[in-house]
């Protein structure tokens, strides 16, 4: 059995290839083109890398965060469902899933039966994702890695109060003109902490139930993770490929569908 799960994110598109033993391949592409084109490219890449033909794939399951269509997929699923299934696949006892992506933070909590209990996404007017860090890194002429590395040099953080990326940028710039300006590492540590604090604040809307899985591309950032762990006050799971959890979930939904339909040909809920 070979299943492909695709997550068309706002910036990057992710793919996971699943067979009977588990995940065999992951791929990520960051190109700004039509969803179909990006999906076609990433599928092609995956097939080539694994010397497979399209016919040898049993099912392609896709999810799109930008609302674009996914004509390439045999089955389409929503973001929450994919995130939920992907997280459960990795950690069967997880109760809160926090996905910090480029544009948004998505939080899902699970009930005792490990079904979706509540969910939330950040408010439109409050940058709740990696784009917040990216925009500021760009303005400062640093790479994300450099920025995180510099933030890790200090334990002290300077408060960045603004929730808005643009306001935060101005706040940071204003520190540069303070006399004397605070150490840059502390400002940057504060910046990462500010995103973490916002993400943790968002959990207040659904209530954290431990254990928590932190995933999404931003959870690769050590300075962010450090602040997040400091603030969350619950056991935190991390995973080696956090940006692929949604794509994994899509693939898992496909696998379950095939397994179910083998058992009962009429099951069609996709679960």
């Amino acid at each position: 059995m070979k299943i492909i799960g695709i997550d068309i994110g706002s910036i990057a598109t992710k793919l996971v290839l699943l067979n009977d033993t588990g995940v065999v391949y992951r791929e990520s592409l960051s190109i700004s083109e039509r969803s179909e084109t990006v999906a076609a490219k990433i599928i092609e890449k995956a097939l080539q890398a694994n010397s497979l033909s399209r016919d040898s794939i049993d099912l392609i399951v896709g999810t799109s965060r930008s609302g674009g269509d996914a004509p390439f997929a045999d089955m389409k699923k929503g973001l929450y469902m994919c995130l939920f299934k992907g997280a459960l696949e990795l950690f069967p006892d997880v109760k809160t899933i926090i996905d910090v992506g480029a544009e948004n933070t998505t939080i899902v909590t699970l009930d005792k039966e490990s079904q979706i209990k509540d969910f939330t996404v950040n408010d439109k007017c409050a940058a709740g994702g990696g784009v917040f860090l990216e925009a500021i890194a760009k303005a400062m002429g640093l790479s994300l890695d450099e920025m995180a590395a510099e933030a890790m040099k200090t334990e002290k953080t300077i408060d960045i109060a603004s929730t808005c990326t643009i306001f935060a940028e101005q706040e940071i710039l204003s520190y540069a003109f303070e006399d004397p300006p605070p150490p840059r590492s502390e400002i940057l540590a504060g910046l990462h902490e500010s995103l973490a604090s916002r993400v943790v604040g968002l959990t207040g809307k659904v209530g954290v139930i431990p254990p928590v899985l932190l995933c999404g591309g931003v959870s690769l950032n050590p300075a962010f993770v450090r602040s997040f762990k400091k603030l969350i006050n619950a056991e935190v799971y991390l995973t080696e490929a956090p940006q692929f959890v949604v794509a994994l979930g899509a693939a898992v939904i496909g696998r379950n569908y095939i397994l179910n339909s083998k058992e009962s040909p009429h099951a069609g809920s996709g679960n």
């Binding site: 706002s10 910036i11 930008s66 609302g67 674009g68 940058a127 784009v131 925009a135 990326t165 643009i166």
Partner: peptide, 12 residues
């Protein structure tokens, strides 16, 4: 920030 999202969607 919103304009950025809009631009990405347009590209898509």
């Amino acid at each position: 920030i919103f304009a950025k999202t809009e631009a990405i969607n347009m590209l898509r």
